[in-house]
């Protein structure tokens, strides 16, 4: 477990929305660009890593109760995506690293801080 704020600091992420959610605890993550795959496979509270930047990612994150979205590879959210994320209180974070590196670092961080929680 780590908070969003700790993850932002450790992975050098830029916070584009959800500045007030940095205390949210993150227990897991999911990586994917196919929205149906993310709908089926991700869990509540996950931090979702994707390259998609259009506004439907906010709907997916909101429907799945994700802790937030990391846009990998330095991708920036589209203007209407950012607007919607701010309105719905969904944190959007930008990583300059690839999705692979971002996921690896996040996994390392969350699993090393895990205390008695599996999966």
């Amino acid at each position: 477990m780590a908070t969003l704020g700790e993850i932002v600091a450790a992975l050098d992420l830029k916070v584009r929305s959800g500045e007030d959610k940095m205390g949210t605890e993150v227990h897991g993550g999911y990586t994917g660009d196919l929205l149906s795959d993310v709908m089926a496979g991700s869990k509540e509270g996950d931090l979702w890593i994707t390259r998609q930047t259009h506004q439907n990612i906010v709907a997916v994150a909101s429907l799945k109760d994700h802790a937030g979205i990391i846009l990998a590879g330095g991708a920036e959210p589209a203007a209407d995506t950012l607007e919607k994320a701010k309105r719905e209180g969904i944190p959007i974070l930008v990583s300059n690293r690839s999705a692979f590196e971002t996921a690896g670092m996040l996994f390392e961080m969350i699993s090393s801080q895990k205390t008695g929680r599996s999966g």
Partner: peptide, 16 residues
């Protein structure tokens, strides 16, 4: 391109 149309939608509906 938007990440839809992966051919998983109806399967998800059936499975969930």
């Amino acid at each position: 391109e938007m990440g839809f149309g992966a051919g998983m939608g109806l399967c998800n509906i059936r499975n969930f």
